[in-house]
Design a protein around this nucleic acid. Sequence first.
DNA 1: GGATGAACAGACAGGTCTGTCTGTCTTAGA
DNA 2: TCTAAGACAGACAGACCTGTCTGTTCATCC
Lengths: 201, 201
Amino acid sequence: MTTKTASSPERRSARERLLGAADELFYEEGIQTVGIDRIIERAGVAKASLYDLFGSKEELVRSYLQRRHELRQARMLERIARHEQPREQILSLFDAFAEVAANPKFSGCAFARAGAEARPDSSIKATVDESRAWTLALFTRLAADAGAADPQLLGLQLVSLYDGASMSAYIDRNPQAARVARTTAALLVDAAVAGPKRNAH
Amino acid sequence: MTTKTASSPERRSARERLLGAADELFYEEGIQTVGIDRIIERAGVAKASLYDLFGSKEELVRSYLQRRHELRQARMLERIARHEQPREQILSLFDAFAEVAANPKFSGCAFARAGAEARPDSSIKATVDESRAWTLALFTRLAADAGAADPQLLGLQLVSLYDGASMSAYIDRNPQAARVARTTAALLVDAAVAGPKRNAH
DNA sequence: GGATGAACAGACAGGTCTGTCTGTCTTAGA
DNA sequence: TCTAAGACAGACAGACCTGTCTGTTCATCC
């Protein structure tokens, strides 16, 4: 039904059920807070199966983040593809964020939270870094496409905006955060394209 | 020497040593990661003394955050007092942030990290909320002083900027983050004062 | 039909965590 | 000098966490 699991039509594979449970619990409650036992209970999977499939809790966490990252990549690229103009493409990413943040279960950026919890030398931190680097590169590319005078600067500004809004939406439960970020993004893009040096090209 | 501790001149009180150790360890490594044993070891204090003085780990965490909040309040107000113009006052807060973020032990915003780790109904979360509300109110007040067309909007924008830069400086170890935030803040302030409605007053 | 392998349940080991408790020592003040 | 309080060391209880292991069930495939 989903990927393989030849005959049993109803149930997903143990691996997918584990990743599903990990996604819900790690994301909503944090990585350190949630123990293995709660994950296997929700997934309906034996503990031995988890360790056969993933080897350790850390590797399960890494897989959970990897999957989140791939889903987010797909979501962002799909949004971008809806528009032609780079300015609209950038703003559409903030629209997508607004939709995600409106979900009552929204708990901030999974990568930011994981990065804050992880030890600096862990494989988890490496996965977080990878995802954040991809996002920065995407915003920077769009900034260049939009004709920003300094694409790297605008890229950093947009990512910061994204991070800040995500934090406010989560910690402060601020429903305006996404809208404010979109407004600010438009302002920054226009300012960067007009150029700090007065003369538009 | 510091506050009381009548006769022993060298050593600070057990309470202060505990708060000092908590400040270093909780801030650098996270609240969940650091156990009571490591704190009392670094503080050179008996476990019984900790529980006599604070009653629980949660209360120790709360006190640690409360102290951080008060120190930050003082630091921000002192910075503001150095300037007359609201615009300069706002930018001076980003200068102060740049100095803090340049410290190699900088580990992001203590309140953001604690807020991400804490349960939503805990006293820790309440302390975080208090601190964040104070900061937002401060930025909003300065935005109004600066003559922003929409002070609440500019306040939210500046706080988001602050949060985003803090995250980037910590997770990405990005040394440019503070400078970028300052640049962006100047741009946002000017845009807000000029007004989106074309006519400056 | 028998073999293979994935998934199951659940006990167990070894470690860590918070919080309690006992008892000792030192110092300040009556 | 006696007392009371603060601080000390460290054992202990009880919970929880990760990871291992044993043995069972069941579907698939040769």
